[in-house]
């Protein structure tokens, strides 16, 4: 058996160092570990796991691939392995109450929010750790100070066509409705703009900058904080205004009954003949005896 020569030994050690360093680096930078760490910063993964099993796993499966929704023939979307689904996406659908659904999950209607902040973040943390979702939450929700004026014009150009000029929501066709957005926090709006939930397209930083996202949030905040009239009414869409016009007309007609005369139906001599007609003359007596023109 021949001994290893020194130069050979040195070169092997060199290779060993390189490989070892590579392994260490690879372990250090592995995405799983990183997300595990960040997930813990987000929320309680154990709680998240429990809540996910209760509220989400029935349709999205315990491994996040999405299975047939009970009672329908439609398949729930996968959470794992889709670039679009990020921590912000999960946070958004929980924050707005879009998930978990009380009834038909495809009905596109706004719902009651099911989880508080700690529970929501726990679920987000769990999905980040378990399914390896990108954790973009901090990037998306860290917003500069917004300018409502610029926000109005950014909103008019990018959002009003679907969500209405003052964020009241509307129709999107094909049984889809756009939600009212003037009730949402700037953070919620920022998440939605970036991830593009459901039919909504995602808007990247080239289309709407972070500053503009903050501006839109500030504008809708302004819409929300509008105090309105003593009845609490803010700007009326013409459809709702038409309801108030009807009320105004009814109020006017009722006042006419009071100022002028109670409504009476056309007299019916045939029907009246059977009854005793009142013998007192009509209340208004002056008679114009001239002939009709």
């Amino acid at each position: 058996m021949r001994t290893l020569s020194l130069p050979m030994c040195r070169s092997l050690i060199g290779w060993f160092v390189v490989v070892a360093a590579g392994v260490v680096l690879a372990v250090w930078w592995s995405p799983g570990d990183v997300s595990a760490q960040e997930a813990e910063e987000l929320g309680d993964v154990a709680l998240g796991s429990q809540l996910y099993a209760q509220a989400c796993a029935q349709c999205h499966a315990s491994d996040g691939r999405g299975v047939e929704v009970p009672g329908t023939d439609r398949v729930a979307p996968a959470l794992q392995g889709r670039e679009q689904v990020t921590a912000a996406y999960v946070d958004l659908v929980l924050r707005t109450g879009r998930m978990p659904p009380a009834a038909d999950p495809f009905d596109n209607q706004p719902r009651k929010v099911a989880f508080n902040e700690a529970q929501r973040l726990a679920i987000v943390a769990y999905t980040v750790e378990e399914f390896g979702l990108t954790n973009d939450l901090a990037d998306v929700t860290d917003l500069p100070e917004g300018d409502p004026g610029n926000g109005q014009s950014v909103y008019a150009e990018n959002c009003a066509a679907c969500h209405g000029a003052t964020g009241g929501g509307g129709v999107a066709g094909g049984g889809a409705w756009t939600p009212a957005v003037n009730t949402y926090e700037p953070v919620t709006l920022a998440e939605a703009i970036r991830v593009g939930p459901f039919q909504m397209p995602a808007f990247g930083e080239k289309q709407i900058t972070d500053q503009e996202v903050a501006d839109v949030g500030a504008f809708l905040e302004e819409v929300r904080s509008e105090s309105g009239t003593p009845l609490g009414l803010v700007e009326l869409n013409p459809v709702f205004a038409s309801g108030f016009v009807a009320l105004l007309a009814v109020a006017m007609i009722l006042s006419l009954f009071w100022i002028s005369s109670k409504p009476t139906w056309f007299p019916d001599p045939e029907a009246d003949a059977d009854e005793d007609r009142p013998t007192t003359p009509a209340a208004v007596t002056p008679v114009d005896t001239t002939e009709q023109p």
């Binding site: 009003a160 066509a161 209405g164 000029a165 509307g170 869409n237 013409p238 459809v239």
Partner: peptide, 10 residues
């Protein structure tokens, strides 16, 4: 630019 739910007066 046209907003969703745009109506004239009643």
């Amino acid at each position: 630019e046209v907003g969703n739910n745009a109506q004239p007066d009643w």
